[in-house]
Design a binder for these strands. Structure first.
Lengths: 147, 147
DNA sequence: TGTTTGTAATTAACACGTGAATTACATCTT
DNA sequence: AAGATGTAATTCACGTGTTAATTACAAACA
């Protein structure tokens, strides 16, 4: 319960940890001219199938205004498509296109190799343990037990 | 060594974890009209004393272009000051001002209360363990053992 | 001394993060 | 059916993330 100083606090540690991880993936994404967020959108749609914008935003951890822009860009590049939902003119179903799927397939081997290398360096057990602890943290805070 | 799916991967888990944590601090920062990044800059300068821009950027995990903008804004608001380093016209020492220190002092009780509440909900032991694992991950990846 | 090479900081361009306001529809209420 | 309320998505405004290019200065060296 000590006052957190910057060097050992969750906000800074989580930020730095994410940075060192993403640094490994960015060159791959840059070579294919897609952003980290666009990549998340594609992955989520590929895994979950067609989704409405709100659900997609939640699953990809992207805020609605950002998602609006991302969808626009990726529709133009033909990586995703949208279809109106009947009986509700507000909603639309977003789906990954064949080209989008192809991109994911293309990058899959490299993506897995990068991730495996990280896991190998870090250790499989620590890796699993870290994921568990993060999941638990997300759980304990997202259900809003107040500040 | 399984292919990471979006639901259990370090990039997503770290992102979500940081989001649920920061959600607790944002209202406080917003009330005082400073951003999360500006807050990091103030905290680092308060803890470490005057620093040059490069060192400050590293410690606060902010990229140089962002830091340039942040410094400009906070100089105007008189939260930080800069002094040229003699014998090198490129460098400047950045320091927190009395007003900046006052802001930190002001927010300190609330900041600590928020953090303590998180730690209480999550559990002190898990909290320590998580910080250790994050530190270890940062270590194992930042020394560039290649992709 | 003048030129090259290196380094710190800034600028530029574009995408995303964030909160507030707005628009477009649905639904509820009377 | 008409208006009030609610919800999904978008738009707006501004700050930050990211890479590449540029500027300003220092150091090496020919």
């Amino acid at each position: 319960m000590l006052p957190p100083n910057t060097r050992r606090s969750l906000p800074m540690a989580l930020l730095r940890a994410r940075e060192v991880i993403m640094a490994h993936f960015r060159p791959m994404l840059a070579r294919h001219d897609i952003t980290e967020q666009q990549w998340r959108v594609l992955r989520v749609l590929a895994e979950a199938g067609p989704l409405e914008a709100t659900e997609l935003a939640n699953r990809a951890s992207i805020l609605p205004p950002s998602l609006t822009r991302i969808i626009k860009a990726m529709e133009e590049r033909q990586f995703i498509s949208r279809d109106k939902v009947k009986n509700d003119g507000r909603r639309a179903l977003l789906a990954i296109s064949p080209a989008g799927l192809a991109l994911i397939e293309d990058l899959s081997p490299e993506r897995i190799a990068i991730y495996d290398a990280i896991e190998r360096r870090y250790g499989a057990e620590q890796h699993e343990h870290l994921l568990d602890l993060l999941e638990s943290l997300i759980q304990s805070e997202s259900s809003e037990n107040q500040t």
